[in-house]
């Protein structure tokens, strides 16, 4: 049996209150650890809140400055500079790095880089190190969303190893572009972790879900089924200026079925177990990924780009 115990932390961050949000993270991390989980996943921008507008500037963290990060601290020592003075929020990353000795932590934050660009980022901390940072690639800037106004686009859909399993992190809108999960699974991802801050919207007759929730769950099922992967969706709850985030965090297994889920609109922690034997079985029975022809895709995409 190839099992992974993990936790989905569906929280309501307060916009701009990083200390408050950190406390909430620590509380959920402790609960997840007690439940025996090896991995805990928080929503998009879980440490900062979502509709930050100009406050993006105030809450950004340059993780390279975090001195507790074992690998980075070596580099910082080499430069002879004390980067810690550059940013007040390093202690937040540091205290989560401490916690990551016992449990892998995925959480969202506003990242700033050495060139003072800002990103809607998600880190994965493990064993006291920063294992991976995903910078959101597709930044929605339409309707109520204005991410491109503040954030720079990420450049890739990285695949990295969590607890022996190749995984990827897609942040909210990233997942709406089916190319993102296509790239990730072809790079070897078996666990597709989607963290989001999705507002509840749209009333439909005879439907007990908001329209936005219905579309999300259909998408997650498609990704899980056709890419034969586990899809772990962690969405936030709470309100920002009257906009309510829908929650309903859930896990879709490679047969496209929803295995576990949290309530809509309320905070909650879901401790679950996923079985990779089940994924192997699905991939054997329906070898869509094996048959995927990247050469055709590449040729077609190249011709599209050339034609344009």
């Amino acid at each position: 049996m190839d099992l992974i115990k993990l936790s989905l932390a569906q929280i309501a961050p307060e916009p701009g209150l990083l200390d408050y949000n950190l406390e909430k993270h620590l509380k959920y991390i402790d609960e997840a650890k007690q439940a025996g989980s090896k991995l805990i996943i928080f929503p998009e921008l879980s440490l900062t809140g979502y509709f930050l507008k100009d406050a993006v500037y105030d809450v950004a963290i340059n993780i390279k400055n975090s001195c507790k990060n074992k690998e980075n601290s070596k580099n910082i020592e080499n430069t002879g500079l004390n980067f810690k003075t550059f940013n007040n929020y390093n202690y937040i990353i540091d205290s989560l790095l401490d916690k990551s000795e016992e449990i892998v932590i995925i959480a969202g934050f506003v990242e700033s880089d050495e060139d003072y660009n800002f990103y809607n980022s998600t880190f994965c901390l493990s064993g006291g190190n920063i294992l991976h940072v995903h910078r959101k690639v597709y930044l929605p800037t339409y309707g109520m969303f204005e991410e491109m106004r503040y954030f720079k686009q990420g450049k890739e859909f990285g695949v990295f190893n969590i607890l022996g399993v190749n995984s990827t992190i897609l942040t909210c809108e990233d997942a709406w572009h089916l190319s993102s999960s296509y790239i990730a699974v072809n790079k070897g991802a078996k666990l597709i972790i989607i963290n989001s801050a999705s507002p509840a919207r749209g009333i439909e007759e005879g439907n007990d879900k908001f329209s936005s929730v219905k579309m999300w769950e259909e998408l997650l099922s498609v990704i899980a089924f056709y890419y034969k992967s586990y899809v772990i969706y962690v969405n936030r709850v709470g309100f920002e200026d009257g906009i309510g985030f829908s929650g309903g965090s859930c896990v879709f297994s490679p047969d496209g079925k929803k295995d576990y889920s949290l309530e809509y609109l309320d905070e909650g922690l879901l401790n679950i177990e996923i079985n990779l034997d089940f994924l192997k079985n699905e991939r054997f029975k329906t070898p869509i990924l094996r048959d995927e022809n990247l050469d055709i895709t590449l040729k077609e995409i190249k011709s599209i780009i050339d034609y344009r």
Partner: peptide, 26 residues
């Protein structure tokens, strides 16, 4: 215009209640 029926009411009700609760508490 979608009708608020007995099926979607539950979610709408919860959203509106949470809205008042959380925005007031804040």
């Amino acid at each position: 215009l979608p009708v608020i029926d007995s099926i979607n009411f539950k979610n709408i009700h919860k959203l509106l209640i949470n809205f008042i609760k959380e925005e007031v508490k804040r």
